[in-house]
Nucleic acid binder design. Sequence first.
DNA 1: TCTGGGGTCCTAGGACCC
DNA 2: TCTGGGGTCCTAGGACCC
Length: 415
Amino acid sequence: MAASATILHADLDSFYASVEQLLNPELRGKAMAVGGGVVLAASYEAKAFGVRGGMSGRKARELCPHLLFVPGHFDQYQRLGDAAIAVMRDYTPVVERISIDEAFADVAGCTHLFGPPEQIAQTIRRRIRNELGLPISVGVARTKHLAKVASQVAKPDGLVVVLPGTELEFLHDLPVGLMWGVGPVTEARLRNEGIVTIGQLANTPGKSLRGLLGEAVGDKLCDLAWDRDTRAVQTRHGARSAGAQSALGRRPATEQVYKPTLRHLADRVTTRLRAKSLAGRTITVRIRFADMRAITRSSTLDAPVSATAIVAEIAEELVCAALAEHPHERIITLLAVSVSHIGPQSHIQLELPLGLVDEKHRPGTRQSLARWSADCAMDKARARFGRDAIGYAINQLNKRQSVPDAFRELAEKSL
DNA sequence: TCTGGGGTCCTAGGACCC
DNA sequence: TCTGGGGTCCTAGGACCC
């Protein structure tokens, strides 16, 4: 078996909330949250009252009446998140960032320079604390999964090293919910079978696990429970899809509502695609109804597209057809547009001879080329004058937002 | 308690091809 | 006349992660 524990998982504690407490000393030691309508992040003091990310502001205030809400400094989150990752990169180039505040690193190649992994982890933690003023928890283990579990166990502001040979001992007493890939549904299914700890999961026959959770999930959890995680730390992989969504409150399921919204969402998505010279073949829409049930509809084209108007029109047709299938649904609460089967935007494809493909939705027509060119011109103008300077006039109607634009932009960074 | 926004991967059924 | 099996792609839904 591969010998040493060289994989680190580093996770900034309650990141947004910690940044706010760093910037404003009056918030330190207090129950506070970033957000308003919805909690984007909560301090440990607020978490003690049961406040969680994703929770509505109203619910959070019920749980914690003296909870302080702050609007958020999103530019600072990006800057400090980048800075923390940069500290890790001072020790090894093998860093896999998985979100703004979380990354894996494999230090196998640099222990001769910086000492054993535990020492590197301590140094990283100390530097991020001293240089950035932020608490960070780190797990060190032989596999990614175990390093991730260890960093969760280390929270808040701790370090947990799982020594080789002690992995199963460490893992098997922990609750299954700490495993990567076990969410509320899987946890409940396992609990119904009397499986609460990772050790109990490990000792459940693979066959019954597959029957309970499906083939892939069953096999994966079985492997993870026995610490058979073979994934390597990967430096980078491109996005497979790009999407945008908007919660609407309760709105009537009419053209007047969904058309402008879809146009706005298509604009957000395709702008990001074009900025990376990407395009996608599959357009997917998602509609959520009043009871929170959601449906999706998709359409796959012969060639990739990135023009706003084309994506918007396809999205409109999909939504129109889907609503016709659900005539009793009068209220919609969310719309989403996403583009997948992403690949590089080919210029050859844009110059296909007219007539070769002539349906209006297929790329390569004069119409689509004109639209793509117009979009690119608009992208350039926005780059100079700001995002709201120019755009589909209809988009300006949609200003009532539940989440600040800056937060959306932060989330978009992963593409 | 009426629940944000960005993603990834898996499953199951059907179409289609060889 | 009836029937094979494998592979790939697409669609819709669902679970999960940050």
